[in-house]
């Protein structure tokens, strides 16, 4: 059986996870805009409406605030909604229910309720969709206690983390980079989970730790492969969860390599790179550092339409190569 490794795309892996979740638990249902017969803007729900019916794969009107709130209400009262925002940018319209309600309800009511809610956010740039359809807003939600925020970087994790999210009693926000949807990779059959809150070492190395998120994990691996040819040995950590952060994984790696580069697509300042840098600076790993910490993040601009400008807005493999090489060689 194992001789043939089954490959699925990232989008197919998510779809399979949602189907398994619905098979396992009657309470699970999907809600979102155009997730039924259209199959979702990115074809992630695909034909699930044909298999599970429109009572469990619910097309909402274009009403993000209301839709998010309905999902919160259903979650609090015994259902297990998986709510899709058509683009992560539209989280801005649902923010009230996510931040003021879903995140705090259990706390405010002294533990009397939980909010077992999953929300999915297709995110990121690279599709030419310009400033209002290309943002990376995960750190916004990562700032809110009460939420869990994950960014699976592979088809394997997309499935396993979604199933972990559905099983989780608290609200889990999943940011899926749109350019990953077509990425193929090994995805085991059946039910399995990948834990929320655990980072993964994607590549072991001695000279430098790159902490990357989402699509930047693959870019960091590509950069590491190039630099291997120059004798530079890079460790790549896939953070996977940005709240709660796997501090220990980062600390342990930096203690080993003595250098840290953070790579993420979201706007550089006040983001995940600042948090990872600070956690190292506050820990015993600080004493092991041989060089200043470097962050590579998105430019301090909205995402432009022009494709060359768009590419220049977020870190690309050559940028990672240059930054990593300079860091290891002590160039400042």
């Amino acid at each position: 059986m194992d001789a043939v490794v089954r490959e699925l795309s990232y989008a197919q892996a998510i779809q399979e996870a949602m189907a398994i979740a619905m098979d396992m638990d009657e309470r699970v249902f999907l809600m979102g805009e155009d997730i039924g017969v259209y199959g979702g803007a990115f074809q992630v729900t695909g034909d699930l409406v044909e298999r599970y019916g429109s009572d469990r794969v619910i097309d909402t009107p274009i009403s993000e605030l209301g839709g998010a709130g309905v999902a919160v209400g259903a979650a609090v009262t015994g259902m297990r909604p998986i709510f899709e925002f058509q683009f992560s940018d539209f989280a801005t319209l649902g923010m009230e229910q996510i931040v003021n309600q879903a995140a705090k309800m259990r706390f405010m009511l002294g533990g009397e309720v939980s909010v077992p809610l999953v929300m999915r956010f297709p995110a990121g740039s690279g599709t030419g969709a310009a400033a209002q359809h290309s943002q990376s807003l995960e750190a916004w939600l990562g700032h809110v206690p009460g939420l869990k925020v994950i960014q699976p970087a592979t088809p394997h994790d997309a499935k396993g983390m979604l199933l972990a999210a559905v099983a989780d009693p608290d609200p889990v926000m999943i940011f899926e980079h749109k350019l990953l949807y077509k990425m193929k990779g090994h995805v085991p059959e059946g039910h399995y989970t990948v834990p929320i809150g655990k980072a993964e070492i994607r590549r072991e190395g001695r000279d430098l730790t790159i902490v990357a998120t989402s699509i930047m994990v693959q870019k960091a691996l590509d950069a590491a492969a190039v630099l291997e040819g120059e004798g530079i040995d890079i460790e790549v950590i896939d953070l996977r969860t940005i709240r709660p952060l796997d501090r220990q994984a980062v600390i342990d790696s930096v203690k080993k390599t003595s250098r840290l580069l953070c790579v993420y697509e979201a706007v550089k300042t006040l983001g995940i790179g600042a948090e990872v840098s600070a956690l190292v600076a506050e820990s015993e790993a600080f004493d092991y550092l041989d060089a200043p910490i470097v962050r590579l993040g998105g430019a301090e601009t909205p995402i432009p339409y022009n494709p060359d400008l768009e590419k220049a807005t977020v870190p690309q493999v050559p940028d990672i190569i240059t930054a990593a090489r300079d860091l290891v060689k002590g160039v400042r």
Binding site: I62, D89, G128, A130, A131, Q132, H133, P304, Y305, N306
Partner: peptide
């Protein structure tokens, strides 16, 4: 009209009174 920053979804012509297309429904 948007110097290449906006594209189809943000097409505008402020001089002629068009304050812009919008990527956000109802925006």
């Amino acid at each position: 009209y948007c110097k290449g920053r906006g594209g189809s979804m943000h097409i505008a012509d402020v001089a002629k009174g068009n304050l812009g297309a919008n990527g956000i429904v109802a925006g």
